[in-house]
Design a protein around this nucleic acid. Sequence first.
DNA 1: TAAATGTGTAACCCTGCGGTGACACGACGA
DNA 2: TCGTCGTGTCACCGCAGGGTTACACATTTA
Lengths: 106, 106
Amino acid sequence: MAAHAEELFAALADPTRWRVLNLLAERGEGTATTLAGELPVSRVAVVKHLAVLDRARLVESRRRGREVRYTVRPEPLTATARHLAAIAHEWDERLAVIKRLAEEGE
Amino acid sequence: MAAHAEELFAALADPTRWRVLNLLAERGEGTATTLAGELPVSRVAVVKHLAVLDRARLVESRRRGREVRYTVRPEPLTATARHLAAIAHEWDERLAVIKRLAEEGE
DNA sequence: TAAATGTGTAACCCTGCGGTGACACGACGA
DNA sequence: TCGTCGTGTCACCGCAGGGTTACACATTTA
């Protein structure tokens, strides 16, 4: 598994981060301050979450004057979806081979 | 996002757990002791990892006399892959709508 | 220019998690 | 029957992560 994939899974493992992503997807964009206004956590907490999401490339930030607007980035999700499907397929094949060998062995 | 989905992402966020899953997929099955023999961690650590993977339904355990053999389960991966692809698709549509609105607004 | 508003960041708290060693229990083989 | 071997579990350690408050800095606007 690629190293940054684990970073992405870790990013997706937190419920607050999913709420941030959902809010951004619904509204199109948002700042740390506006997001904190709709969440039960402080702005600083939101900033930290956005930093994690940014490292995982799940959000994009554009400076707009004195504020920083964040947008959602779907690409890592589609890439990870393909990745997981491929691994599951490998496992399936492996299990099929083992099952066949076991039946021959009887 | 479903609650146990975050449990699954958390399970996938650890490198040692991926090594456990890979070993199980390669060999078809394994016990906590045999796995610990091929990993740089103790048996107790492997047991804990297997417990996490079991809660996420990524492995299956069958008692065989005095030992417990673990097998890999691909289903959660395929399910999560579909889930992520669907979410990414939603985001894509949302972004397309917003982009169109922005262009009309000019 | 001064007030207001948003961001950046430092210091700190507490919980969870990955890891360890030690020991008790149960099942198998000699 | 007794030693062996695998599992289960308890107590503990260190650190990263999610959370907070407080304060300094930058940019807009009245």
